[in-house]
């Protein structure tokens, strides 16, 4: 009996093989096996023989949509600003997409970073990805030598220990509270759609912080972001961060200093999260790749909550809807505006 993921892997390989061999796509973005237990590595298959290297398991935490705009661009002839767009059809790229990744592709399409006609989206309904950090904690930070994944369990082995974990217990927090595990756009769907999930308290982690006092919130922010090394893994793992020059690299004015001093680290995290407002799909890439375990996802989750509550919108759910910050409603809440306090809407 093969596991769910092994079956998905087989199908991914055969689809990628077909797409690459027929020349429908010039490259296919997926995952291949990694060199460590619990690791996979993003992989761009460019030849049909490469398709057999593709794998799928619960550790595919980095959002593959992250690679899409640059990979598409790499197949375009070079041009300067103002040059006309290249003529004729350009090569296509195939990509795997779970629910959140597909929503990020929608955002990229809406922001003109990706041409829908040049992408072949192979949808994979997500069962939730596992947090390697949680696994490490569950085994007491001991050195893990192998990890064998079954449908509902993980068998972790190291020198002198063997431990079986329930898979769902170590699934990432963002996946546990995800309500849209199925891809919203795709050309090919692998596996069965999981359907909308019912999640109570989707924003429980955010509520918990909101309920703290002002001082406690500041201390939480200061403590949990203090170990940041400013490596920008969170930014670079994010499919929304494609700016040619990031605000952290601006020097006149320099919005954020380069050191790891508290103010600069905090400003970086506030602005990074804020730039994702109305665009973030809570894919968890940022948090998963952080080498020091900073919970920066809670900032974007807070923004997601506000966008949903105030504007009734979630990022990337459809190609027809505008992104929430590229539109407005004359009746948008404005209780926070001093001159509007007395009116309806109240103080938020």
């Amino acid at each position: 009996m093969s596991t769910v993921n092994e079956k998905i892997t087989e199908k991914i390989r055969s689809e990628a093989q077909r797409l690459l061999s027929t020349g429908e796509v010039a490259a296919f973005i997926g995952y291949e096996a990694g060199s460590l237990p619990m690791s996979v590595r993003p992989f761009v298959a460019r030849k049909q023989e490469d398709a057999s290297r593709l794998v799928w398991n619960s550790f595919c935490v980095l959002n593959l949509a992250n690679y899409l705009p640059a990979l598409l661009k790499s197949f375009e002839p070079p041009r300067r600003p103002g040059d006309p767009p290249p003529e004729g059809p350009l090569p296509k790229v195939g990509i795997l997409a779970t629910g959140c990744w597909s929503r990020n592709i929608v955002v990229q399409i809406k922001e003109n970073q990706v041409d829908r006609d040049r992408v072949v989206i192979v949808g994979v309904p997500s069962r939730g990805m596992v947090s390697a950090r949680k696994v490490k904690e569950a085994v007491g930070e001991r050195d893990i030598q192998t990890c064998i994944e079954e449908d509902h369990s993980l068998k972790i082995c190291g020198e002198g220990f063997e431990q079986e974990l329930n898979r769902w217990d170590v699934v990432r927090d963002n996946c546990k509270t995800c309500v849209h595990p199925d891809p919203v756009i795709y050309d090919i769907l692998i596996g069965d759609p999981a359907g909308e999930r019912q999640v109570q308290d989707r924003f429980a982690q955010v509520d918990e912080i909101e309920h703290k006092s002002l001082e406690e919130r500041w201390n939480w922010f200061a403590d949990s972001f203090s170990s940041c090394v400013r490596c920008y893994a969170c930014r670079n793992a994010c499919p929304l961060c494609y700016c040619p020059t990031c605000f952290v690299d601006d020097s006149r004015p320099q919005w954020v200093g380069k050191s790891t001093e508290q103010t600069d680290t905090m400003l970086f995290h506030i602005l990074r999260a804020y730039h994702c407002a109305g665009r973030c799909t809570d894919c968890g890439s940022c948090e998963s790749v952080c080498p020091v375990g900073i919970p920066m996802r809670l900032l974007t989750k807070k923004l997601n909550k506000d966008v949903l509550e105030m504007y009734g919108s979630e990022a990337g759910m459809s190609l027809d809807e505008p992104l929430p910050l590229t539109t407005y409603n004359p009746a948008d809440p404005q209780g926070f505006v001093l001159t509007e306090k007395s009116e309806k809407g109240g103080d938020r």
Partner: peptide, 14 residues
């Protein structure tokens, strides 16, 4: 819209 979100985010971080 942007101000509303920023205002809330700043309060969120203290």
């Amino acid at each position: 819209r942007r101000f509303a979100l920023l205002n809330n985010l700043l309060e969120f971080v203290g």
